[in-house]
Structures are given as C-alpha cells and as structure tokens.
C-alpha cells in the first residue's frame, strides 16, 4: 500500500497547443524516455506485465484453478504430468504458481486502471465544478474530501468491503472512490487559475456553454498533471488491492490474484515453502516499481522545475 494522497504534483497549465507543437513534444518525450535508463526500465517492465495480463491465459502452462493433490507444494522446477514443469512450484492445492501469477497480472492491472478511471473521472468532474463555480459548492466538495482524508484509506476500504462483500466490481468502486479527492484537489487548483485566463474569458464571451468551457476549454489544459498523478495512483491502488486480497476482501477465491496468493502462502511459511510467497510478491514489487518510475519520469518531463534535486 502506498499513501495515495500525497504524490500530488501541480504543473502550470498553458492553453492547448497546436498540433505541430504537440508532435514536437511527443518526439521530445520519446527522446527523454529512451535516454533515461530508469524510465526505459519502467516502461519495459510495464510492457511485459501488460503483455502477460492480455496473453497470460494463452501462455500459462496450466489451468490456474486446476487442483492436483498429488502435486501439492512442489518446489520450483519440479516435473509435472507429461512434459509440463512447475517452473515456479505449486501451491497447497497443487495449482501451478506460474499460471496463477500470469492470471493474477490481469486482475492487478484491471483493478489498478479501472479504479483510477472511476476515481479520476469523479475527481476531475468534482474539481472542475468546485474550482469553476466556487462558493458553497466548492466548500461542500472540499469538506467532503477533508473528511475522507481523515481516514487512513485502507480502513475505509475495509469498512465498506466488509459490508458490501468481496468482488471485483466492489473493490474497483471502493478503491476508485477512495482516489477522487486527489484528482479533485489538483483539478480545482488548476481550474481556479485557468478560469481567469484570457482564452477562457474569450470562450465565455463567445457564448460557449458552461459544459463546453469546463470540458473543452479547461480540461484539456490540465491533463498533463493528471497523468502524473494517475501513474503514481495506479501503483498505490495495486498495493491496496494486494493488501485487501491478502485480508480476504479482494476478488472471490476462484480468481487468482497476487495478494490472495500471498495470503495463502502464510500458512506454509514455517515449512519453508518460500516460492509461494516470493514470486507473487516480486510480481507486485516490479509492477508497482514500474509505475512509480514512470510517474517520476513523467513528473520531471512535464515540469522540470519539480525535478527532485539531483
């Protein structure tokens, strides 16, 4: 788990640039990416995880839920039935750890991206409305956020999931709703400064509707900082999902997840069945690391003034 509300980055917004400028920026981004070893590593890890999440079922050697009590708790590299090998060992029910790991990538990424989509959308709309209209709407929205931030996030998630019950949709909603205030605060701050800019004034003078001003004039100018937050947030959400699955509040047991694999490994630590704990943990660490690295790189690229000293 990571602190989901503190990786906040604000960059000064500028009007939507022309296409040629954007193309130049894309080229600059690509050059910056290939010259930064860390960012390249992060991107590479992310590509591998995404590939695994999409094509995992096709490359998994076993059915991840197929139990074989004769093949339980096998060490990594143990031969299975026929030509098959348990490359990363098997668990307490004789299921292949590698296959479950490959399927687990799907859940982690899906939860991470979907929760950010939910939280990002809610927070962006709330932030736009709050910053543009101000007054009591702003007060109510921001105080709601303060209340939410008063909870250690994982406790809030536990409280809701215990009542709602575990499930993919529930966990996405709870983790997503947990993120909205991070986006709302950034978008609000940006909107407050942008609403006074000449081009927003111009749009208003031209008779554009409020909806158009918010979503076509202001929103495109605050996408950059949002992508930075989203990158850090995906990392945080993946950690939270793993923690909640570990506590038995994630997706149902029939769906393999990295967190639930770790939870199952607890009962076999004393008998030193290390592979049940090591591999799912490494999968989480590398995925989260990749998102954190890319978040750092994006932040430095989009606003070099924010670059951490050094």
């Amino acid at each position: 788990m990571t602190d989901l509300h503190t990786n906040v980055v604000e960059t000064e917004a500028v009007p939507v640039p022309p296409v040629s400028y954007r193309r130049r920026e894309m080229r600059r981004a690509f050059q910056s990416l290939v010259t930064s070893r860390w960012a390249l590593l992060g991107m590479l890890i992310l590509l591998v995880v995404t590939f695994v999440a999409i094509f995992g079922p096709a490359v998994a050697p076993f059915d991840p839920n197929r139990q074989n009590i004769m093949m339980r708790l096998l060490e990594p590299g143990s031969p299975g039935v026929g030509d098959l090998t348990y490359w990363l060992g098997s668990d307490q029910l004789g299921r292949d750890v590698l296959s479950r790991l490959l399927y687990g990538a799907r859940v982690s990424l899906l939860v991470g991206v979907a929760a950010i989509a939910v939280g990002g959308t809610l927070g962006t709309v709330a932030g736009l409305v709050s910053g543009y209209f101000g007054g009591w709407i702003d007060d109510v929205i921001m105080r709601l956020g303060d209340i939410q931030l008063a909870f250690p996030f994982i406790l809030l998630a536990i409280m809701f999931l215990v009542v709602l019950g575990p499930g993919l949709v529930n966990i996405i909603l709870v983790l997503g709703i947990g993120q909205w205030i991070t986006y709302a605060r950034i978008v609000r701050a940006q909107t407050l400064s942008l609403r006074e800019k000449e081009y927003v004034e111009a749009a208003r003078a031209m008779g554009d509707s409020t909806f158009s001003i918010l979503f076509r004039t202001i929103l495109p100018n605050i996408v950059a900082p949002l992508t930075v937050i989203a990158s850090f947030n995906v990392a945080g959400v993946i950690l939270s999902e793993a923690a909640l699955s570990f506590l038995g509040l994630g997706v149902p047991p029939s769906v393999p997840t990295w967190g639930s694999m770790l939870s199952e490994s607890r009962d076999h630590l004393l008998s030193n069945k290390w592979w049940m704990a090591v591999f799912p943990g490494l999968a989480i660490v590398f995925t989260v690391l990749a998102f954190n690295i890319i978040g750092d790189w994006l932040r430095d690229f989009l606003d070099p003034r924010l670059k951490e000293n050094g």
Partner: peptide, 22 residues
Amino acid sequence: AMLGQSIPNFWMGIMMILYFGL
C-alpha cells in the same frame, strides 16, 4: 528508497520472517 516505496508491507513482513526469522 525507490524500491522501498514499491514493496507491499505485508510482503516485506513475510520476507523478513523467512530470512531474519527462519
């Protein structure tokens, strides 16, 4: 430090049990 920010605390606990404990 970057690695430390990417490790789930409960996994860190499990690894410590395995290495420093067992």
